[in-house]
Amino acid sequence: MSTLTVPYLNIADPEFAMDSEAVRAARDANWYAETNYGLAILSYEDNAALMKSTHFIQGSAQWPEHNGVHSGPFHDWWKENLLVLEGADHDRIRRLTNPAFSPRKIKKLAGRFDELANELIDNWIDRGEVEFVNEFAAPFATRVLCILLGIDEADWVKINDLGSKIGAALGVTFKEEQESIDAALTELQEYGAALIRDRQENPKDDFLTRLVSENRDGDKLTDAELQNLVVLLIFGGMDTTRNQLGLAMQSFSKQPEQWEKLAAEPEKYAKNAVEEMLRLNPTTRWVTREAAETFEYKGLTIEQGTTVHMFTMISGTDPEAFIDAEQIDLDAERAPNFAFGGGVHNCIGQFVARSDMMAALPALATRITDLQIGNATWLPDSGNTGPENLPVRFTKR
């Protein structure tokens, strides 16, 4: 490690906030900080360089251990899921999985995503207020997954409940909530196993059938690999989109002129609206890597085994990389964000997430205005964050 004096951030503190003067000051002082979970990379330039570095492996494998969790269903599942696999094992599963995520096939569902967004808005638009998480973000994100996987949309409440409980494993309260997390994961594994058996016996024209039947040169995913992947898709896909939509409403409520711009030309600005949210206010506050070997970067010796967190939010608002970095600008041409990671370990479901948010945000903007956020409650600002509930008052267009 370098002997330079560098900032220290206590990211295990439940009160830690990425969007804080302390973190901005750390970024202004140095390109990295020390934390109780390893190093934090703060600048955009260095996130861009290190995110794709071949010196690193995906670093989340040790997350349970960092939180004092050394056994149990989640611990065991986490060690085998695609997020943390490396080398030939990772490449093989990505190769067998990628065809099911074909952008062309996902685009065919865009019309249904639009219909769903407007159907949910119809339920509360005449009230002038909505509890956004439970009345829009959660049902939208979860039912999108049901549509994608060919699951009965009526199951969304159960899936959302299980996914929300498992999502606590990505926060700093993991140890305290382990019993609930493990129970929810076990139930979701059983649910996923039943879905896989059904598609093996009764193939359909859907994503899950493509996943189950994909065969490359005689190689197929095993039942255990399929179950692991289905659980990851349900948990990861639902949690991320639900949180990101709530964060988007928070950000747009602060810049109503940008909301009006999206409303006026939704087709023109849908993509940029999503990308600005992923840059400015991402649910994934940091992406983790681990040094596979000892190497030197900008005078800093990073020892093999060091955990390194790429701070996606603070690098996404780096004034050295972006003009008006802390403002939404739907007309700006921005450098890529890292909300879905980067390099070999970019998120396999990112096209799905982007597609469904490109349906949700324009639908909302074209139907409601004058957004006013009420007294919300929030998940810890670590790993993945977002609102637990989000009261929003508005004017119907």
Rank of each mutant, 00 (worst) to 15 (best):
Ala48Met: 04
Val133Asp: 02
Ala264Met: 06
Lys175Arg: 14
Arg289Leu: 02
Lys396Trp: 03
Leu300Phe: 12
Phe140His: 11
Tyr269Thr: 09
Phe338Val: 02
Gly128Pro: 01
Asp91Ile: 00
Phe252Arg: 04
Thr312Trp: 09
Thr222Lys: 12
Met51Leu: 15
Ile41Trp: 05
Lys396Tyr: 02
Pro139Glu: 12
Leu262Gly: 07
Ser315Gln: 07
Ala26Ile: 07
Val230Gly: 03
Val157Arg: 11
Ala183Ile: 03
Glu260Trp: 09
Thr294Ile: 09
Glu275Arg: 09
Glu388Thr: 12
Ser71Thr: 15
Trp78Asp: 00
Thr377Arg: 14
Asn375Gly: 01
Thr301His: 08
Gln58Tyr: 04
Ala61Pro: 00
Lys254Asn: 10
Arg94Ile: 04
Leu9Asp: 05
Ala117Asp: 08
Asn228Asp: 08
Gly343Lys: 03
Ala184Tyr: 02
Thr3Ala: 03
Leu96Asn: 00
Pro99Asn: 02
Val287His: 12
Phe74Met: 10
Glu153Asn: 03
Ala224Ile: 00
Leu300Asp: 12
Arg285Lys: 00
Glu131Asp: 15
Pro380Phe: 02
Gln372Glu: 15
Ala270Thr: 06
Leu4Thr: 03
Thr241Asp: 05
Asn123Met: 14
Glu333Pro: 09
Lys175Trp: 00
Gly342Leu: 04
Ala263Cys: 08
Phe74Leu: 14
Pro203Gln: 02
Glu214Met: 13
Glu260Val: 09
Glu260Ala: 14
Thr283Cys: 13
Glu34Trp: 01
Thr284Cys: 07
Ala61Leu: 12
Lys175Asp: 00
Met277Leu: 13
Arg197Gly: 06
Ala49Asp: 09
Leu300Pro: 00
Cys146Ile: 12
Ala100Phe: 04
Trp31His: 06
Asp155Lys: 13
Gln250Lys: 11
Ser102Val: 01
Asn384Gly: 08
Asp126Leu: 12
Arg393Gly: 00
Ile302Ser: 06
Glu135Cys: 13
Met310Trp: 07
Leu83Ser: 09
Thr209Ser: 14
Thr307Ser: 14
Val212His: 05
Val352Asp: 00
Asp152Arg: 09
Val69Lys: 11
Asp205Cys: 05
Tyr297Asp: 04
